[in-house]
Amino acid sequence: MDDLNVLAVLAGVLAGASPIVLATMGETITEKAGLINLSLDGTILLAAMVAFLVAHDAGSLGLGFLAAALVGAGIAAVVGIAGVYMGQSQVAVGFVLTLMCRDLAYFLGNPYSRIQGPRLAPLPVPGLERLPLLGSLLFRHSLLVYLSVAVIATTWWYLYRTRWGLELRAVGENPQAAHARGIDPKRLQLLHALLGGALVGLAGGAFSLGIKPGWGRPQGAEGMGWIALAIVIFGGWHPLKVALGAYLFAFLQVLGIPLQSWWPSVPAQVFQVAPFPLMILALLLLGLTQKDTLQRWADAHPRVRKLLRSIQGRAPRALGRPYRQE
């Protein structure tokens, strides 16, 4: 009986994390190229709304997700063009887009509030679903969950095993040197902003067509974009560590559900903010590991140093700074 519970929880984590995984992978790709797309929170909401609207009107989930990806890429294009080609502050543009896209989603989505619409159904993998334990854990999910896992692996493979991924990391690290080797840093940054943005858009669709089906104000995905941005930092810009962070976050969320029943007098909304102090705490721990005193202490203790090294990830060196040719 206990086994089943643990399995159910873990299966829930796997499913619940899928949108966050998509969003964090998208942002990891974008930031690895040296560009910050701060508009995640608004992008996710607008994409969620559009996905639901399109899926509802066209009666096609596929079209819904396609529309969500296009919305994500479109918003990322604004950040990319303004930030990379025009040299405007990426943070400023991203922040304005965050607020604007959220309001745009509420405004345009108003007629679709609280109506029934299509949602992803579980798609058990024939054969594999019957496996003991693993079957219910891994193989009775919706297509989206399989996709999210595949995206993690693909992102890792793309970044570390392909030539484009290598060039992308190089540009995020040292665009001048990349230019000296015949790579066009700006073009590459824009392209990966689009790719990352499309994944963030899919995350929006994953909310409104998947784990928080439907549209409304609030949708329930509010704040998730910010969490995703923080998880990318927490995961040290490495796709596997970032994914781990996303699953850890989903796990804590699932854990929070029984917690609520223990304090029935505390309103559910209070629990909804729990991820945010957690986010600050995680970033604080990360920040403290960079402190001089700790570093020096760790240098004297090889094991601690190794642990610290594994936690620490370094931001792409050129992150947020537009490249200018000499």
Binding site: E167, A177, A180
Partner: peptide
């Protein structure tokens, strides 16, 4: 003009004229 956070092989591989993602 290289990329300190990447590996030796990565640095060696960057900037070859043949196109494609492989």
């Amino acid at each position: 003009l290289d990329f300190p956070s990447l590996t030796v092989l990565d640095n060696f591989s960057l900037g070859r004229p043949n196109r494609g993602g492989g």
